[in-house]
Design a protein around this nucleic acid. Structure first.
Lengths: 143, 143
DNA sequence: CGGAATCCTAACCGATACTG
DNA sequence: CAGTATCGGTTAGGATTCCG
């Protein structure tokens, strides 16, 4: 039995780090995940539902590339590398001809997926409201 | 009585917009809020607790500037403008000498605050794990 | 105090070409 | 198919100065 539960470790980490401080490592991590491609990749991968026993979703490179319309090869590859390095996504190479590469989420990545998918839903749900606010703001500026 | 409930309108918006499409307005909105300064500002403002009746938190410009260590005047002012335009934050000018300006969240901003504050907590809670993953990844690359 | 305006450079990022 | 490498344009964003 561990001396600390997972919840206790998280609570301690919250005390130890403060993302409001520029030098804090967690600030750099927050900067890193506050990225549109990170948000879209993590939103695209992973299970959306609450079913913890569902098969993890895996996607091929080309599949991701198609799903995330407008992403360049470079940004997709680069962002995937960084997410793999951080332990958020898994990269699986199947040595067929031609080679097949699939990406999926680790448990850590899945925990962030919830938030990212939430952001995507928020953007879609409040688009109209934001658009109306912008028009009102711009109209007021003209006068 | 409205012909649609708020929940129904949100559900319709989810169907109408898809942030995975490059041309979709919600994609631009997602890009906009996937920004480190947006995340930090929205995390700093707003009520953290579940108490809906608590006083909304307001902060002065200089107060925000100090809280968000490392932010330049330009980025802070620029990001606040854009958030005000989108209807996420309120800007209140008190014409004293010298002038006092306070920022707060609108209801719309408060709804996004939850997600942003969650991201900040996530970064702080999982910093150690991510750091360990990076070391493992880099060590493996050396061989 | 709370900015706006200007200048300037570091980085991001897309397009293209090439590789296993 | 799934990338890496290189180049060049755009832009983010910091430093500085000035203003109501």
């Amino acid at each position: 039995m561990p001396t600390q539960t997972a919840a206790q470790r998280r609570a301690q980490a919250r005390d130890a780090y403060d993302a409001f401080l520029a030098e804090c490592p967690s600030r750099q991590l927050l900067d890193r995940i506050s990225d549109k491609w990170v948000a879209l990749i993590l939103a695209a991968l992973g299970r959306d539902g609450p079913d913890r026993n569902a098969e993890p979703r895996v996607m091929r490179y080309s599949e991701l590339s198609r799903r995330l319309a407008g992403v360049s090869q470079k940004m997709l590859a680069q962002t995937l590398r960084s997410l793999e390095r951080d332990g958020l996504v898994t990269r699986t190479v199947t040595p067929s001809v031609p080679v097949t590469v699939t990406y999926g989420l680790t448990d850590l990545g899945q925990s962030l997926h919830q938030l990212m998918y939430g952001m995507k839903l928020w953007a879609e749900a409040h688009m109209d409201e934001v658009h109306a606010n912008r028009e009102r703001y711009d109209a007021a500026a003209d006068r």
